[in-house]
Design a protein around this nucleic acid. Structure first.
Lengths: 142, 142
DNA sequence: CTCGCCGCAACAACTTCTGTTACAGCGTAC
DNA sequence: GTACGCTGTAACAGAAGTTGTTGCGGCGAG
């Protein structure tokens, strides 16, 4: 499969909305966002749909429609974005159940679940330490 | 894509080899390992091939062939296994290059690379804190 | 030499993700 | 009230990765 870029796309969208807002542009259409990400507007609308369900962005319909941030960029962490886009965890267990006759096959799944939980926990902590405002600041420096 | 179970399979294999070794069984064939993981022997040989290239297991050819650990289970960390199986990092950047005309599109990739590097770093530290011996001990308790 | 097992290539089935087209629905502006 | 622009979503194709399977050449201990 292709690498999972959903968190990247969503973060890009939010950073772009934050910059537009700071520049006085109230709303952006999915076409305008798509022009920055360089992809199809439907991809952007899918991502924005995830973010809207998570309460991170707001949409205005009808004429003059478009998207805006629902909260300040300082208050939105990448962990919230990660949860909003529903990315799959980095590791999966066995596809088929291991042999329960084998002592390793019997206990390996809960044992690995514990390990993987700890890994995801530190990953989440790290993501929680970065906000959209942080990303935007770093982006404009590069 | 299906969830990535390569780290799970490889860890299962190593734990099983460690237990067999402790029980006095010198080598295991890929068929015997496959019986515990409950999958095809070729899957196991693929995984064992990765582990062999990383120097974690040894193979004996000819009659009485089979696999054994190259090092003690206490000294093999899940980080080494993770590197050995070459799992993909949890996050990917954009598939197509963002619009360089846009200030966000221009700088977002290096900015996100930094964030993702930090995330992978803490993930690796967590994986380095668990050994095959740890996993085997937890497995036998469950 | 024989036999058992490894190593590897080739292939099918399946899943996920991206990208695209199409169209109904909504609400503001006129 | 109507027209228009944009959203929301379904449907589909293409690409890529993973698992599982078959087949066969190669190696080496006995």
């Amino acid at each position: 499969m292709a690498a999972n870029s959903r968190l990247t796309i969503a973060t890009h969208v939010l950073a772009w909305l934050a910059l537009a807002q700071r520049r006085g542009q109230e709303v952006l259409t999915s076409d305008q966002v798509a022009a920055s990400v360089n992809t199809n507007p439907v991809i952007i609308r899918r991502s924005l749909g995830d973010l809207r369900r998570a309460g991170l962005v707001e949409v205005r319909h009808g004429a003059g429609a478009g998207w805006s941030l629902a909260r300040s960029p300082e208050g939105i962490t990448l962990l919230e974005v990660y949860d909003a886009v529903g990315a799959q965890p980095p590791f999966g267990l066995h596809h088929t159940e291991p042999n329960p006759e084998c002592p390793v096959g019997r206990g390996i799944r809960p044992a690995l679940s514990d390990v993987y939980s700890r890994v995801e926990q530190v990953m989440r902590q790290e993501l929680a330490g970065t906000s959209i405002a942080d990303v935007l600041r770093e982006t404009l420096l590069k």
